[in-house]
């Protein structure tokens, strides 16, 4: 329930809800298999789904978690790493301006480690964002090929 709250609030920032007066947009997220980083995968997938639905957004949000394991700050923990890690810091980024839309943390981190983690998230977000864009482009490529077939071109 807390999870749906922070995910909803993430999208409240970017979805241009003014375009849909008196309308509710529901995002349903189902975790099919969990291996760490579920909320970040959920946000990343929901952003692509909203874009695919043609809902206008200010940015295509993506998310990744960083944590600390064996005294080292590292990105995108698997479930085992998460269980043995000392910290977990999931962050959602709006790639256009680098703003943080979801930001949670638990564990024991110094200020320097928090800042190092945020830097790491921003780097990782670039890769994830590119994957999101590629996925959306692939859908439309496929659709336009199908349309061409339909028209017999």
């Amino acid at each position: 329930m807390e999870l749906s709250k922070v995910i909803r609030e993430t999208f409240e920032n970017v979805v241009i809800a003014e375009a849909y007066p008196k309308t509710q947009i529901d995002i349903y997220i189902e975790i099919l298999q969990s291996d760490g980083g579920t909320r970040c995968a959920a946000v990343t997938a929901a952003a692509v789904a909203l874009a695919d639905a043609g809902i206008p957004m200010k940015d295509l949000v993506c998310a990744v978690a960083v944590g600390k394991i064996d005294g080292e700050v590292a990105a995108d923990f698997s479930k085992d790493e998460d269980n043995y890690g000392q910290s977990d810091m999931p962050i959602a980024i709006a790639p256009r301006n680098g703003d943080m839309l979801l930001f949670q943390m638990d564990g024991l981190l110094t200020k320097d480690e928090v800042m190092q983690g945020i830097g790491m998230v921003k780097e990782a977000a670039k890769i994830i964002h590119q994957k999101q864009v590629d996925a959306l482009k692939a859908v439309y490529d496929r659709q336009s090929q199908m349309a061409e077939l339909d028209l017999g071109i």
């Binding site: 922070v6 301006n97 943080m100 949670q104 564990g107 200020k111 928090v114 945020i118």
Partner: peptide, 23 residues
């Protein structure tokens, strides 16, 4: 000495510089 939990709530965003000051 340590930050042990963070929660951002609400639709507003935050950023790296603000977080540094707030910590």
């Amino acid at each position: 000495k340590h930050v042990c939990a963070v929660q951002k709530s609400g639709w507003a965003s935050t950023n790296e510089k603000d977080v540094s000051d707030l910590v």
